[in-house]
Design a binder for these strands. Structure first.
Length: 499
RNA sequence: GGUCUCUUGGCCGAGCGGCUAGGCACCGGUCUGCAAAACCGAUUACGGCGGUUCGAAUCCGCCAGAGACCUCCA
């Protein structure tokens, strides 16, 4: 681990859904981490719910990198095989359906929404993964895995479709260990299909589906012209790029069953062993007491959030506000969307970022009257404890008080400590939490603007000297009105551009 | 119906047996021509009822309410 902060003796601990407990993270290969996260099905705009896993695992990615690991982060794009309604035999592929409705090619649908997804992620300062494989680009590998599963006796063909034989699998391995259920319960509680099913049992899931005539997305195979089942892609692409054993598999909690359970079954059936060492699941974002989901129709898209274009939004919220909002809760807790909460995050973030900026203005003294080591230690202890970002942020705010006190002159800091403090804040705020200054473009745009504002500040100072408060206030108020905020400090006037 | 989880102050959110996070809002003060910002201070909590314990927001039981998964969902 090579970083300048000497993370105390504490290990990095993560909560493993498989064991339902916190475990010390030990990579499979020394110094390297293989990370796979379920990405979006690209058939419509990304919404606030999508921001959660992507920011959570971006935090993980960034933190592991900070700790000195070489991380290979694989996040897939589901662009085929995700059925609208798996219970109905007539279930239509989500992307095919959208293509039919919009009268465009399925791959146009995919491209369009993949582009917006990427754009939104960039806005949220989510780093792109190392590899972003698409299901449609791995049809052959998926067919190979199906064959392997069938050859081992855990799959069967019926009318050109292939299904996974859960009962058979359960005899040799245990089905349901991730989501904590056993097959007997599933048997008694699964809705029975109305007799027409090709499946032996209702809880069997599709590995390959024969395409109905109107189904546009189709590939030839030894069983039929068809398409792969949804769960298959992740089993295939994770092992293809990360190996038959890799460290961490992440995703939303709602994917635990059946998606991840089926992944385990498929990989185990074909390879004879499990592939994932740590399963991590982020919790959901709720709105009006209910999970935000596309299928429930109660979602707010990221674009709407950023522009304020939704009836439930009192205003627009910047990408960094959204990011900070999400980081202020632990990733395994539910969180509630509300305008008040978002506005609180917005202000809190501003306070934090102002303090980081203030660090640049601070002048060092002979010696320090403040102690910064405890804050650093507590902050990293929190991050080491299953990525407890809210606690880490709380300690960052403790430091904000210190920074402001130094600025105002009530406390002093040595040159050495100042360098240390700056480096700490830059690492945690920018590199690990992935926050960034949002107004830089506006502000930097403009030596011209800067000159003009300085001129107005001068004029106002003159007015103030003449006790012409009316003019002074007019300049300040009018600038405020167009989004330029003036702050009279002891050392002069500061200004900044507000959104 | 089955499995599981949650209920913290005006709002959001930590906490996982004693040392009572943090942010936002509100109130008082310092600073300021007035503001803003900043700082200092105050005030509000652990769904209800029992139990275990010297001690419980934290453990156990019951009750109430909310949610998740069991179909697609991040």
């Amino acid at each position: 681990m090579s970083n300048s902060f000497k993370i105390m003796n504490s290990d990095f601990i993560i909560y493993n859904t498989l064991s339902r407990s916190k475990e010390i993270f030990k990579p499979f290969l020394k110094g390297k981490v293989g990370l796979y996260v379920c990405g979006p099905t690209v058939y419509s705009d990304s919404h606030l719910g999508h921001a959660r896993p992507n920011i959570t695992f971006d935090l993980l990615y960034r933190y592991l990198t900070f700790l000195g690991f070489k991380v290979r982060y694989v996040r897939n794009i589901t662009d085929v095989g995700h059925l609208e309604d798996e219970v109905e035999e007539s279930g239509e592929d989500k992307i095919s359906k959208k293509a039919r409705l919009e009268q465009i090619e399925p791959m146009e649908v995919v491209q369009k929404y993949m582009n917006t997804f990427h754009h939104n992620m960039e806005q949220l300062n989510v780093r792109p993964p190392s590899i972003e494989p698409r299901a449609s680009g791995h049809i052959i590998e998926q067919q190979q895995m199906i064959e392997s599963i069938v050859n081992k006796g855990f799959g069967y063909e019926k009318n050109g479709s292939v299904y996974f034989d859960v009962e058979k699998y359960n005899e040799k391995y245990k089905y349901g260990k991730l989501s904590g259920r056993n097959l007997d319960d599933i048997k008694t509680n699964t809705r029975q299909l109305d007799g027409q099913s090709e499946k032996k049992n209702s809880f069997d899931f599709a590995l390959w589906k024969k395409a109905s005539p109107e189904h546009i997305m189709r590939w030839p195979s030894k069983w039929s012209v068809g398409f792969p089942g949804w769960h298959l892609e992740c089993s295939v692409m994770s092992t293809k790029y990360l190996g038959e054993q890799f460290d961490i598999h992440g995703g939303g909690m709602d994917l635990t069953f059946p998606h991840h359970e089926c992944e385990i079954a498929q990989s185990t059936a074909s390879l004879g062993h499990e592939t994932v060492r740590y399963w991590m699941h982020n919790n959901m974002i709720k709105i009006n007491g209910q999970k935000m989901a596309r299928s429930l129709g109660n979602f707010i898209t990221l674009e709407e959030l950023f522009t304020g274009g939704h009836a439930m939004l009192q205003k627009a919220y910047s990408p960094m506000t959204i990011r900070f909002f999400i980081l202020q809760a632990h990733y395994r807790s539910e969180m509630d969307f509300s305008n008040e909460a978002l506005q609180a995050s917005e202000k809190g973030l501003e306070r934090l970022m102002n303090a980081v900026k203030t660090l640049n203005d601070i002048v060092a003294s002979e010696s320090s009257t403040v102690e910064i080591t405890p804050i650093k230690e507590k902050c990293f202890t929190a991050l080491n404890d299953d990525l407890n970002s809210p606690i880490a942020i709380a300690h960052l705010f403790d430091g904000v008080k210190i920074i402001n006190s130094i600025k105002s002159g009530t406390e002093k800091i040595s040159a050495e400590d100042l360098i240390d403090l700056k480096s700490f804040y830059h690492s945690v705020v920018f590199d690990i939490l992935g926050l960034k200054e949002e107004n830089e473009a506006n502000k930097g745009e403009s030596e011209v603007l800067s000159g003009a504002v300085e001129l107005l500040i001068d004029l106002r100072q003159q007015a103030k000297t003449n006790k012409d408060w009316a003019t002074a206030d007019k300049i300040r108020n009018d600038l405020t009105a167009i989004g330029i905020e003036l702050k009279d400090g002891k050392t002069g006037v500061e200004w900044n551009v507000k959104r």
